[in-house]
Each structure stands twice: as structure tokens, then as C-alpha cells.
């Protein structure tokens, strides 16, 4: 295949304008939904559940992002720490360059650059953080969600060293002192433990959708990616999607529709 990354993304950028564009990519930037799905999810396991999320970056506005972040952070008592380098965040918005640093040099289209990207824990199928945790404080549930057990976390921060997405936060301060709103139904955390997005497993266990999905009003899809009939599987298959750092083999479960 004589098509390099730069060229590909240029074509891809064009395709956003015209809404069509079928590519056959052999090596690098996986972009076509069905191929991404084939690489990241593979055949899937029948009868098993693997929760995944698809964020429609085409339709997501800045207000949407704010609302979604607010909904998550408010519900989970995420502290609002003014120092950005020591902040705690479960979900946050960032630029294309920061979300996909390895694609940033490939000259993505202006339109793609100006969009907002919601970043959160990818709930990798093959999570590095789980591998390195010395006490199994972070572990993968049978449905693929990577959970953090704050009761057990020793605060060694190895998971933060290992996570290639910077999705984890450490409590550098007493988090309760920085709560902007208090949700009395949900715990906060203590100083010296690591926390992150948990795909709202406490809500999934009760048959509800995650807060961000609810707040996104249809702009974020969520479902069981092992189910070929599910809406999430369908929208991924039918669109151009990106995942963050697919080359690392972590198999992230958060897809970005571009």
C-alpha cells in the first residue's frame, strides 16, 4: 500500500467535509470502524459482556463537554483542585494533539483540530495498570471494567506510571476540602489513594447508564461491544473511529467517532 499516514489523514480530513470516504488501511492509523472493531475487540465472546463507549466528537459541543464533566464530577464527589498539575479528574476535555499525540504531526484537518475530545479511563481490555498493581487494588471485572478499590490502594502510584493515557489521578491533598458540591449518596476519597473513572459500575449494577452517557443526550453511545446487534457495535462499524494509542496493544474500550 503506497499511502502514508500524512496522505491518509488528509484524505480522511476531506472525507469529513463530504461525509463519505472509504479507505483500506493496512498499517498505521486504524480509522474505519469495522477494522478498528476487528483489531481492538476481535471476534468477541458470545454471551459475555464487555462495556464500551463511543463518543461522537462530530456532534459534541463545548457546552456538552462542560455539562458531562460536571455531571460526572458532581455525582462522584470529585474534588475541584485549582492546581491543574495536581488536580483529580475522572473525565476531562482536551485537544486533538493531546488526545492523539502520535497523530498530531500528521496534519489533521482544521475542523478535526478544533473539536473537543473527552478523555477518560479507556477501560482497556488489556490494562497495564491492573498488571502492575501490587495489591490488586485495581482490577478488571468480568465485564471488562477496570475498577479501583480505594480500601486496598496503598498509594504507590505504580498504576499512574504504567497508564499510557494519563487517566489516573492521585489525591495529593485532602479531597474533601476541595469538594465543590457534596453528593451525600456517594463516598469521597481519602488523601494518598489513586482514583479514576469507573464507568459508573455502581449504576450499571443497578441497570442504569453512566452519568456521562446520560448527560450527553445521545452523543455518547454505551453498550456491550461483544453483542453484534448492539447500537454501540453498529455505530462503530458504520463510522470512522479512532482509539487512543492502539499501537500499544492495550485495547482501549473508548472509541472516538470522527
Amino acid at each position: 500500500m503506497a499511502i502514508d499516514r500524512r496522505k491518509f489523514l488528509k484524505i480522511a480530513g476531506l472525507s469529513f467535509l463530504f461525509g463519505t470516504g472509504v479507505f483500506s488501511l493496512e498499517e498505521f492509523v486504524l480509522c474505519r470502524g469495522d477494522e478498528v472493531l476487528a483489531q481492538v475487540v476481535g471476534e468477541g465472546k458470545k454471551g459475555k459482556v464487555r462495556w464500551a463507549m463511543a463518543i461522537d466528537t462530530r456532534r459534541l459541543t463545548e457546552e456538552d463537554c462542560k455539562r458531562i464533566i460536571e455531571a460526572c464530577h458532581r455525582a462522584h464527589n470529585v474534588p475541584d483542585i485549582p492546581e491543574p498539575t495536581k488536580a483529580v479528574r475522572w473525565i476531562w476535555e482536551d485537544t486533538f494533539e493531546h488526545a492523539f499525540p502520535e497523530l498530531a504531526e500528521e496534519d489533521p484537518s482544521e475542523e478535526l483540530r478544533n473539536r473537543k475530545y473527552l478523555l477518560l479511563c479507556n477501560h482497556c481490555e488489556n490494562p497495564v495498570c491492573v498488571r502492575v498493581c501490587p495489591v490488586q487494588a485495581t482490577f478488571q471485572r468480568p465485564d471488562g471494567i477496570v475498577v479501583q478499590d480505594y480500601h486496598r490502594c496503598i498509594g504507590c502510584k505504580f498504576c499512574m506510571t504504567a497508564c499510557p493515557y494519563g487517566s489516573r489521578s492521585y489525591n495529593f491533598f485532602h479531597p474533601k476540602e476541595y469538594l465543590k458540591h457534596v453528593n451525600p449518596e456517594y463516598p469521597a476519597r481519602t488523601m494518598g489513594v489513586v482514583e479514576k473513572c469507573i464507568f459508573c459500575y455502581e449504576r450499571l449494577d443497578q441497570g442504569k447508564l453512566p452519568y456521562c452517557v446520560e448527560a450527553a443526550k445521545g452523543k455518547i453511545y454505551f453498550g456491550n461491544i461483544y453483542d453484534p446487534e448492539a447500537e454501540i457495535t453498529r455505530v462503530i462499524k458504520e463510522n470512522l473511529v479512532l482509539v487512543r494509542k492502539p499501537q500499544l496493544g492495550t485495547k482501549p474500550m473508548v472509541f472516538y467517532i470522527v
Partner: peptide
Amino acid sequence: WHCHIAPEEV
């Protein structure tokens, strides 16, 4: 109660 929020703490 380091993490959990006690009723009177709210």
C-alpha cells in the same frame, strides 16, 4: 469516614 461522607458531615 476518611472517604465515606457521614450524614452530619454533609
